[in-house]
Computed example of a mutant assay.
Amino acid sequence: MSRVALVTGGTRGIGAAISTALQNAGYRVAANYAGNDERAAAFHQATDIAVFKWDVRDYAACGEGVKRVERDLGPVDILVNNAGIARDAMFHKMTPEDWHAVIATNLTGLFNMTHQVWPGMRERQFGRIVNISSVNGQKGQAGQVNYAASKAGDLGFTKALAQEGASKNITVNAVCPGYTGTEMVRAIPEELLKERILPQIPVGRLGEPHEISRCVAFLVADEASFITGATISANGGQFFA
């Protein structure tokens, strides 16, 4: 029987590309989402991927959500922590609400989700966890102190947990996308993209969601079992870690 993969934030943007790539690779996929019922329903209709609604900021909701996934599809073998938000502002204008919302989703969400599946992975002596961080978690970015801090925290989480999982055949890795052509990025004014963002990217273009999803599909495969605690930087040469 094929393995079960759970992707948080898995019905839109990079998450949708990851969910679809894993389905195409033969996994049984569950795509989590937090709020947009219409988009989730459209994604399910287009792909036949099962969708499940809960907020990764809520530990109890994550526990109940994982139980539903495992009841419907089976034990979770692969977890992709992709759910994330941005609340950008220069630091002197950033509110405590901006800070806590981003940290709660982008960093605490990793704990909330991974803590639910970790015991089962240890018991079964197999697991694949991939955390979607960001180039701005590697290099920092003005106006994104909260976002950069959360995404840098994701990398520390990855490296530490990889050491705990290695003896149990559980790998924990990270992918750091650069600017990728999602709805959020393409909503940036074209002039700003051309003058401020694209010049930072040596390949001269935005990434595409499917290019990020291929990194994830590689890391969760059996052939990647010797890779753990690693970070794949998919940013068009914008930053070298």
Rank of each mutant, 00 (worst) to 15 (best):
Q45M: 12
Q45F: 09
Q45V: 13
Q45E: 10
A46T: 14
A46Q: 15
A46N: 15
A46I: 12
A46L: 09
T47Y: 10
D48E: 14
D48P: 00
D48N: 14
I49K: 06
I49A: 11
I49L: 14
A50H: 14
A50L: 11
A50G: 12
A50K: 15
V51M: 13
V51Q: 09
F52A: 00
F52V: 08
F52H: 14
W54D: 02
D55P: 03
D55G: 05
V56P: 12
V56T: 15
V56N: 12
V56G: 08
V56H: 06
R57P: 00
D58A: 07
D58P: 08
Y59I: 09
Y59A: 11
Y59C: 09
Y59F: 13
Y59Q: 14
A60H: 09
A60E: 11
A60Y: 06
A61V: 14
A61M: 03
C62Y: 02
G63A: 13
G63H: 04
G63V: 05
E64Y: 02
E64R: 07
G65F: 04
G65W: 00
G65D: 03
V66L: 13
V66K: 01
V66Q: 07
V66Y: 04
V66C: 08
K67S: 11
R68A: 13
R68V: 05
R68N: 13
V69Y: 04
V69R: 03
V69I: 14
E70D: 04
E70Q: 06
R71F: 06
R71H: 14
R71Y: 13
R71Q: 12
R71C: 07
L73E: 03
L73D: 05
G74M: 11
P75R: 11
P75S: 13
V76W: 00
D77K: 05
I78Y: 01
L79M: 01
L79P: 10
V80G: 02
N81Q: 13
N81F: 07
N82Y: 05
N82W: 02
N82Q: 09
